[in-house]
Design a protein around this nucleic acid. Sequence first.
DNA 1: GGTTAGACTTAGAACTATTCTAAGTCTATA
DNA 2: TATAGACTTAGAATAGTTCTAAGTCTAACC
Lengths: 147, 147
Amino acid sequence: MGMKFQMMQPAQITELLRRRQITPTSQRVKIAGTLFAGPAHFCAEDVYARVNEDDAEVSKATVYNTLGLFVAKGLVRQVFVEPGKVFYDSNTQPHHHFYDSGTGELTDIDAVGVALHELPPLPADTELDGVDVIVRIRQRQSKDRPA
Amino acid sequence: MGMKFQMMQPAQITELLRRRQITPTSQRVKIAGTLFAGPAHFCAEDVYARVNEDDAEVSKATVYNTLGLFVAKGLVRQVFVEPGKVFYDSNTQPHHHFYDSGTGELTDIDAVGVALHELPPLPADTELDGVDVIVRIRQRQSKDRPA
DNA sequence: GGTTAGACTTAGAACTATTCTAAGTCTATA
DNA sequence: TATAGACTTAGAATAGTTCTAAGTCTAACC
Ligand SMILES: [Mn+2]
Ligand SMILES: [Mn+2]
Ligand SMILES: [Zn+2]
Ligand SMILES: [Zn+2]
């Protein structure tokens, strides 16, 4: 888990997948290779485009199947910031996000140091599943040059 | 703004809309009537169903147009907790949410008392647009009666 | 190394929430 | 009451995602 994002030769990706009980097919290795090249946010369409940018083909159905599998196995995390588009986040450490809806850009906020105080108790018979903090930002309107 | 959720006869809804520069058509008054009967979370489908439960008809297009208008005018707020479905929140006070993805239920958390500490500075040339906190919860698995 | 059951991948159809289109209706103003 | 433009509407269109059913690959076994 600590070696994600370092080196990442195909053989290592293969092992990372096996450790999570995922059969490392060529398509899955390729998708994991783009996801874990570095911490980043992708929509399914991004992954589909990158994985197919040379020539070898991975189908859209497999991209969706694989992203779903990786979520289930804890290799990536989903982020919801707008309707009709899921982001897949290769950073699975606890962290939060800035989101600029103008540009569509999603940026990490380290959870260390961000503290939520005085949350009320959870509803009866429920347990915590996670806390998502989205800080929505927008490009500042310069007062010098108004629209 | 402080009289939302009190009484709310049609004449008052009409006035609430006019105050926000919204022409109070019969469809808009009807939609506002269901939204502001009390603080609650609705998806577009919910609003469409309630508004048409007697017999008079409001089209789906108008439900979407009107919800979009009310968002633009600050009468309701959108909440995104899963892909492919927007919630409209008639509570526009700053507050956060519990979300149970099992039941689909969204519950308010008063923002008073919930404090976010040590957020990093915003990216250059951006300004704050809002902070959404989603506390994801799930039904607790009783250890006595495991699945 | 060959067999084989089941896991995996695929193209394309289907689906769902939402937006768009273009034609008719209503509202506000004069 | 006439009118310009705002509003509403049914249905078509769109976009992201999931499903289907048929072929391909993987891994376990011989
Ligand atoms: Mn993207
Ligand atoms: Mn709903
Ligand atoms: Zn992230
Ligand atoms: Zn709420």
